[in-house]
Design a protein around this nucleic acid. Structure first.
Lengths: 159, 159
DNA sequence: GTCGATCATGCATGAAACGTGCATAATCTA
DNA sequence: TAGATTATGCACGTTTCATGCATGATCGAC
């Protein structure tokens, strides 16, 4: 874990909210010069702290009316099955995230699709049709209270 | 839902992967001029299709060793309780996402914390300590197979 | 099909932003 | 304290952005 000072944390906070801030805008938020912000941003990128920048897209404007979380249990716990399931997940762009979890179900995946019909199709033709998958439990998102996945940053005091 | 042509979809795909691509780089990927990419990107932003750009940060480099999904059931279904729960969620930067779901549990929240101890603290002192919360089920992420939340884009044919 | 209106596009270009050399200040270590 | 190292802001050449303009493409009415 690399050492991050207060300036770094503030840069991260700013860029986590708006990844396209100019160096000058960062400078105003962080109270360093634009060139120093540029250097530090680059260092954070090179160190892998900032992995990448992404455009956050509004799924509804794309016609994606249904987001759901699906719990998946594999038929047999083996490295082979896990790898095959992993490949299925990687191939489906409907799958936004996928995590292996502790507990009775093996994986939790988050998917986004056009409507309930395509959701059912996805579950039946992609998940349940796959021989590694034994059991599936689905829950539809009816409301999103918080999104974006911004990580907590230690309360910085730098300045 | 606004009309997106093949060029728009390709721009979105490119920017969903790298939100800091220059207009020239976009031009090369999409086969339009840089100025047209600039205009279309602006239009997508103004239309709200692109909501924002975010830096994606590596939580582990921040010392966040535990990601977990927590199912939360409220003690009583009322608008008052829902609003109060919503406020709690909004106030905690450990909470990355929160969704109200169909099914037996009311909410699914995703959190990131330093370690298991801080996870237990969060559950006990934030969630369970809150009078609106009746029941909590937690599952720790042991591996992430896919992340970033990139939305599926219709296969575009523009060009 | 023709014509005029409208929209999309690339080119050109002035303004804005970037990134880095350099000199200086700040910090660290013996 | 002194020297070495690191962080910083300034200056500036290069890159990028955004927009006016002319032109091409598309649309709709006749």
């Amino acid at each position: 874990m690399i050492a991050l000072d207060g300036y770094d944390l503030r840069l991260l906070a700013a860029l986590q909210t708006d990844g396209r801030l100019t160096n000058q805008e960062l400078a105003e938020r962080v109270h360093l010069s634009a060139s120093q912000c540029s250097r530090r941003r680059q260092a954070l990128e090179e160190a892998g702290v900032i992995r990448r920048y992404r455009a956050e897209i509004d799924g509804e404007r794309l016609g994606l009316g249904v987001t759901a979380f699906v719990n998946v249990q594999l038929s047999r716990h083996s490295e082979h099955n896990a790898r095959r399931f992993r490949d299925v997940i990687a191939d489906c762009d409907e799958v936004l995230e996928a995590h292996a979890l502790t507990g009775d179900m093996d994986y939790l995946i988050k998917i986004a699709v056009r409507d309930l019909k395509s959701f059912a199709d996805f579950v039946n033709t992609v998940l349940l049709a796959h021989e590694t998958v034994a059991h599936v439990t689905s829950r539809i998102v009816i409301e999103t209270l918080k999104s974006g996945g911004a990580l907590p940053l230690r309360a910085g005091s730098g300045g």
